[in-house]
Write a protein that binds this DNA or RNA. Sequence first.
DNA 1: AGCACCGTCATCAAACCTTCATGGAACCGT
DNA 2: ACGGTTCCATGAAGGTTTGATGACGGTGCT
Lengths: 236, 236
Amino acid sequence: MSDTSKPYVLIVEDEAPLVTLLRYNLEKQGFRVEDAGDGGEALTRITEAPPDLLLLDWMLPTMSGIELCRQLRRRPATRTLPIIMLTARAEDQDAVRGLDTGADDYITKPFSTEALIARIRALLRRAGALPQKNKLNFHDISLDPASHRVLRNGRSLHLGPTEFRLLEFFLRHPKRVFSREDVLNAVWGRDIHVEPRTVDVHIRRLRKAINGPDEIDIVRTVRAAGYALDLEDPAF
Amino acid sequence: MSDTSKPYVLIVEDEAPLVTLLRYNLEKQGFRVEDAGDGGEALTRITEAPPDLLLLDWMLPTMSGIELCRQLRRRPATRTLPIIMLTARAEDQDAVRGLDTGADDYITKPFSTEALIARIRALLRRAGALPQKNKLNFHDISLDPASHRVLRNGRSLHLGPTEFRLLEFFLRHPKRVFSREDVLNAVWGRDIHVEPRTVDVHIRRLRKAINGPDEIDIVRTVRAAGYALDLEDPAF
DNA sequence: AGCACCGTCATCAAACCTTCATGGAACCGT
DNA sequence: ACGGTTCCATGAAGGTTTGATGACGGTGCT
């Protein structure tokens, strides 16, 4: 659900000609396509902007496709990311299917473009079938502007008016860092004179309100820059 | 986002003279401008081609601005669309700000063109639609100015403020050598007095921060000249 | 009055920046 | 090749900045 327009497919494949072919066909079908040549690059791209679907070669230079797949399945953020494995005919199909790679589907090289597109559509349909309401959410927090309610892990939170608007603002622009001035302008209003330090205090109140005893802090402090609604470690 | 050329601003306002005025000023500032006289027309236009930013009158003939705003927020495609509300002075500012309209900013009529332009630019910058290009990368490093994050091989790096700005600067001019003076001017600021040797120390800290155990050093020292973001071995 | 909330301030600890001293590597002329 | 010189890498020290936190007084509402 990264972009509003086209579904974003990331191809992880080291054979350049195959990448070119795939890119051409997928783009013709209205997908946005990016590619990565090895596992490391793939991890970087996925972490910075998770695709809607991953086309993953079984055999890769540095990190194998299986290994990458496992790593992705280990992270909550990518646990449900649809993955299609590309395998060579030589490889044992039963192994591919049986091994708990965590891939959602696989296809044997060589394959027809039509078959691939069909599987991609099927997976996307399955994954995209569970869209969101008019609520804002991030990680395990959900805010409903209409009913003015905030939930974390299903339990209801009580926020003061300012904390509520603060959280709402952050939820509308997740993972983005805002300076205290930005926050003041957006949450308090433009022509109000308030000390920038006041933001600190409300951030603290917000943290205290939303962070239970065993829960991670989803408000990230960026020294000399501001605050963001984000996880400290993007792998989680 | 939508287009590569000019940012596209849609004005939803029923007072024709005001529309004319706004259109004139915005187009002079390099925006592409369209307008809609009521909520229904606005919805149509937005659906067929979502603007980069919406200027929305609070009071409208058929569907109120608030209602339109709510509807837009309900759709995934327009959930994050930047919206600036135009309100009359009479209306209660607190209500405008507090009510869950979902607007990103508001401005009170009558307003100066400068103020409006400033807010539009601020919002567009935040939304990432302006020249402010997102995500710089080089080799296997990726830096996102918006979220203030740096990744290498998928893992997140922690940089101090100065190291961050330093890396950002180098990423914007890869493979180019800069003297210590150049770096000081660009990263520290022009009229700051700091010993050129200090650059060494920060380069070292940057190296320590970004270079993992098995990773190559991306910062190249050019004796008697300065530093560059580059691979030591030009063997690709 | 009692309550919930807000803005400001003082304080403390951690993170950070700058400078300096030292050692070593690269470079130069002989 | 050799000594001398220039330049860079590195570690540590001292001082500064910045954010977290707790407390306080004020305000509006019930």
